[in-house]
Simulated scan of single mutants.
Amino acid sequence: MSFTHFNEQGRAKMVDITDKSDTLRTAIALSSVEVSKELYETIINQGVAKGDVLAVSQVAGIMAAKKTADIIPMCHPLALKGVDISFEWEVKQDYCLLHIQVEVKTKGSTGVEMEALTSASVCALTVYDMCKAFDKGMVIGPTYLKQKTGGKSGDFIRQGTTHTER
């Protein structure tokens, strides 16, 4: 397999997608944030001084999906048709995991994997930012693509699980 992001001089370029057909494209990315039980209680009881952690994280994730091309150099700017972010807590014996799922959709000539991954990452980073005064020991990740649909390369569904999937 050859890399498509290099020109004849071996220098970086944005791939030309003008000949690709517009199709429905979706991507689902996952991330997680491991927090202490004390911080979990503080978050769910709206006790974080900066505000509603999950609401702010959700807005940040949507904004990040829309701005992905501004921070990932070879990404094409896309007109996103939808961004849906959901959160689910998993309470363990010694800690808690915040599961973050982001689904991004568009109808276009290139996929939305990077938008979903960027969104999931920024959601997790926003949780960290809002809670770091309380606990700097939070752990982010893993962040990964769970599935994608559409496009020339076809559909992808991640096989196997990580600790963030049940």
Results as ranks from 00 to 15, higher is better:
109 S>F: 05
57 S>I: 01
40 Y>A: 09
99 H>D: 07
91 V>R: 08
60 A>L: 04
112 V>C: 06
80 L>E: 09
79 A>W: 13
58 Q>C: 13
38 E>R: 11
133 A>R: 01
112 V>W: 01
36 S>I: 13
130 M>R: 01
45 N>E: 12
118 T>F: 00
50 K>W: 05
46 Q>M: 12
116 A>P: 04
93 Q>E: 15
85 I>A: 05
72 I>L: 13
48 V>S: 07
72 I>K: 09
56 V>S: 05
84 D>H: 11
63 M>H: 14
74 M>W: 08
57 S>A: 15
40 Y>F: 15
60 A>N: 07
134 F>Y: 13
128 Y>G: 02
58 Q>R: 15
26 T>D: 02
117 L>V: 08
134 F>S: 09
97 L>K: 02
99 H>F: 03
109 S>T: 08
83 V>H: 00
66 K>H: 15
57 S>C: 08
22 D>Q: 11
87 F>T: 02
85 I>F: 02
98 L>F: 04
109 S>L: 05
62 I>G: 07
101 Q>I: 06
84 D>Q: 10
70 D>F: 08
54 L>I: 11
21 S>Q: 11
26 T>M: 11
86 S>K: 11
131 C>M: 06
127 V>G: 03
96 C>S: 15
40 Y>P: 06
33 V>C: 03
78 L>C: 09
81 K>Q: 15
111 G>R: 03
97 L>Y: 02
68 T>C: 13
79 A>R: 12
131 C>F: 03
95 Y>M: 12
88 E>H: 10
86 S>L: 06
115 E>S: 09
61 G>T: 09
133 A>F: 09
62 I>Q: 02
55 A>R: 13
130 M>P: 01
22 D>S: 13
123 C>I: 00
53 V>Y: 01
91 V>P: 01
46 Q>T: 00
79 A>Y: 13
62 I>M: 10
